[in-house]
Amino acid sequence: MYICLMYSNELIKGTLKTVVLSLLAKKGRMYGYEITQHVKEETEGKIQLTEGALYPLLHRLEADGLLLTEKVSIGKRVRKYYRLTKEGTESAASLVEEFKEFSKTMNRLLNNYTLTTAYHG
């Protein structure tokens, strides 16, 4: 799961896949630690990915054919870089599109809500 400093778990659940795929779409190839650090920096620490959530997801996406791995030897250990497959790229695009659409809808819905309560209040 996310260790989330700002947002509730329910709110962010389900967006992890979108975050990881879109990040890889932007950056090309990344390794696990890099992804956690990147998310942490980009969100100014408001969202932190944990290892416990990230690696299971990466393995699942690889099994689903959305990701490819590349192994690079770093001194005495192996570093696994993840990159999108063609299918993964398409999936990333549609997930981002879907989330933007969702966020727009939510905005509209919640703006009205605030206005109405303000009016009654």
Binding site: Y31, G32, Y33, T36, E51, Y55, L58, H59, K71, I74, G75, K76, R77, V78, R79, K80
Partner: peptide, 29 residues
């Protein structure tokens, strides 16, 4: 690195792919 690798294995990670991921992650961190 061997110490960390042994620690990861000892704590129940049997799958090689995951072991490699976690080893690199822990080392980098």
């Amino acid at each position: 690195i061997e110490l960390i690798s042994a620690y990861i294995r000892q704590h129940g990670v049997a799958q090689d792919e995951l072991h490699d991921d976690l080893l690199d992650h822990v080392c980098t961190s």
